[in-house]
Structure formats: C-alpha cells, structure tokens
Design a protein around this nucleic acid. Structure first.
Lengths: 189, 189
DNA sequence: CACATTTTTTGACCTATATCAAAAAGTGCC
DNA sequence: GGCACTTTTTGATATAGGTCAAAAAATGTG
C-alpha cells in the first residue's frame, strides 16, 4: 500500500483515525527526488511539509562556506524549513536528499487548517514536536558533556541506520567535529 | 489579576478562548518557591507541568559532578522534566528556581485529557513546542558554528533579560564554555 | 574498464578553550 | 559592621581537536 511508512509513523506518535489520516493524504503531492536533490534552500520560502515514504534527507545550514548538518529525516519522518513554516520567513536551512527519495508534500496553510479543525491531527503534530524536542535536547546535552569520540559512539547507538546510510562528512558536521578528527576516531577504535 | 503573565503568554502562542483557558486554570495548584529551590530532580518522577507567573527557573543536568544548564524558563513560560512528562520515565534533568518564583502546577494526566478533548489547548501546546524546537535548533547551530565569544554575544542579544538575572556560571554552562573563559571574554570586550 | 570525481585517511603543526589554583570582589546575615 | 560563603577574576599551563595539505581509497560514469 502507498503511504505505508508514513502511516505507521503517524500512528506511532498518536492515535489518528483512518478518516483524519485521509484528510491529510488527500492533499498530498507526490515527488520522486533523485539523490543529492535540493528540496529546500535557505533564503527561499517553501511553504510545504514533506512526508518521506522512502529515502533519506539531510538538513543543513551554510556558515562561512561550511555546511553544518542539523538533522536527518528518513522514511516515516517529515522534513521542512523551520522558519519558513513556523514564521513564514526566509529560512536558514537547506534540505537535500541523501538517497533517491519518495516524498509527499502538503502545503502548510492546508495543514494549519487541519490543525484548527481536526484535533487528532493537531495532537499528532504536538507529539511529533515533543519527540523532536526531546531528541534535540539530548543531542545538545551530548555536545555539551562528551568528547568527540564519545559523541560518535552515542550517535552510532542512537541512529545506527542513519550512520550507515550517510558519509563520514555528514556525520562529522552533525556532531560538530572535523572530518579528519572523525576519521582518526574511527581508525583508532 | 492572577495568572496575568501566563495568560498573555498562552494567547501569544495560540488563540485560546476564555473557556478553554479556564479549563486549564481550574486545575492549577499554587506554589511559592523560594530562590534555589529544587522543583524537579533527575531520577525522580514528577508528573506535573509548572506554569511560571513570576520568577525564573533553570533546568540542568549533572554529568560527572558538573552541572550543565539546558534551559531557562521565566514568567509566562512552562517548565517540566522532558522525559518524565513525555515518557513517564525517570528523567535526566533538575529544575531549580533562580529567583523566588510563583508557579502553578497541573498534573500531566489532566493536561493529556485536555489535549484529547480540547483542540485549542492541543494547538497551544503544539505551537509552544514548535517555538521551543526552533529556539533550541538555533542554539545548537550557534554552538556548532561560533566561537565562545560570538556565542556569548548572541546570547546577550537573544536573551538579554535572562543574562541579567542569572550568574556567570549558569550562562557559561548553558553556552558550554568554562567559567574562566567566559569571565575573560567579558573582560576583554 | 579507465578516467574523473568524491570521500576518507594520514601527517605535521597550531590554537581556542580547558583545567587548576589562588586572589579578589561581592553578598548575605547575625 | 565583620565574618562566612559564593561568585568572579586572573595567571600559568595543558590539550582536544582544528587546519591545511597531500596521498590513498572508493565510487560513479561514458
């Protein structure tokens, strides 16, 4: 069935009825993105949420020519530019596919209407955001309290699948360490 | 009026009717905490959300004897232990008052029932979590991309009021730099 | 399959920030 | 108003991890 991973993931976060889920699905636009395709660009407003059915994306921002990976999204996850979506402002993040990706987009103004009228969808989104906040806070604490090596090992445990699907550079920039250091860490271990 | 700051803050995030707000308020328990009072302890389950009407709290975690400040909450904000609340699990965070604090608590199981039945409250919580996520992501990016000095200056701009209300040690540990380094940064500037 | 491109490894050297320790300044309290 | 305690400053030294550069390995493509 279409939307299988997305559906499972939504229900994993909150009990959403078939009817409500269909309200969401019926506004979906299908996208087949090749690998390395830029879905969202910093500074360009894109008012869509992307639901990933298959594949993997990476969010990053560009500072002084260096890419800093801020997030990975895989099947069942959603991705979008935080500022674009929340404040309708040009954002700071790029989102690109790491692998060929099947995704469905929905315009935020439609989603916002659903939030206002459909309590299940509002709560699904609330819970998703709770979980992201928790994860991000943990990632941040790891950064504050651990050495590069420890952080790498924690990441391997926390996101083993993602570590296997992206290259060393992306992992390094997500952890906030240099490529050479990460390579050395891996070698010694 | 009681709850003034809390009310303003809720409405700042989402249009919540008087009726819905009262559903929340009627379950409030009042707390007058002195300064340096530990509201929440790591490892101890506390299934309440605290709404701060007046005062300031600090969330931190303890790693190898060192405190790492993870968040500040002031009037209008809420505070709680992330893991306790979301997963009903012993958490990793302490929350203590920095100043004498007037707060109101509501049990999470009541709040959860409100989420399930009151769409305005569900959406208020969704929006709060969106905003926290955005702020936290920005803080994290600052950590990945800036020097200690730059981070301090950004913090001064982003949270000028909080910087004036907490001591240097708390700011340093929030920024992830040592007290001596922060003192030197301040001196040279 | 060979060439171009990307990714990873390795080496040499450097610097921002940590750590440790002690002095100085600030704060609260009987 | 002086004593205890906390917070901040300052100094000396150490180090984790950065930077730059080049080689090696892997990957993709006509």
């Amino acid at each position: 069935m279409l939307y299988q991973n997305i559906m499972k993931s939504i229900r994993n976060h909150y009990q959403v009825s078939d009817e409500s889920i269909n309200q969401l699905f019926k506004h979906f636009t299908t996208h087949h993105f090749p690998a390395k395709h830029l879905i969202i660009r910093a500074g360009v407003i894109d008012r869509n949420v992307y639901f990933i059915e298959k594949g993997l994306t990476r969010s990053y921002c560009l500072v002084d020519g260096d890419e800093h990976t801020t997030w990975f999204s895989k099947e069942g996850d959603i991705t979008f530019g935080l500022l674009c979506l929340y404040h309708n402002t040009a954002g700071f993040e790029f989102v690109e596919t790491v692998e060929p990706t099947l995704a469905y987009s929905i315009p935020i103004n439609i989603l916002n209407k659903l939030y206002d009228t459909n309590i299940e969808i509002a709560n699904w989104s609330r819970v998703i955001h709770q979980e992201c906040l928790l994860t991000l806070q943990c990632v941040r604490i790891d950064n504050l309290t651990m050495t590069a090596k420890e952080r790498y090992n924690v990441l391997l445990k926390r996101f083993p699948d993602i570590c296997q699907r992206v290259n060393l550079g992306y992992i390094a920039s997500f952890l906030g360490i240099s490529i050479s250091t990460l390579s050395r860490i891996r070698a010694e271990k």
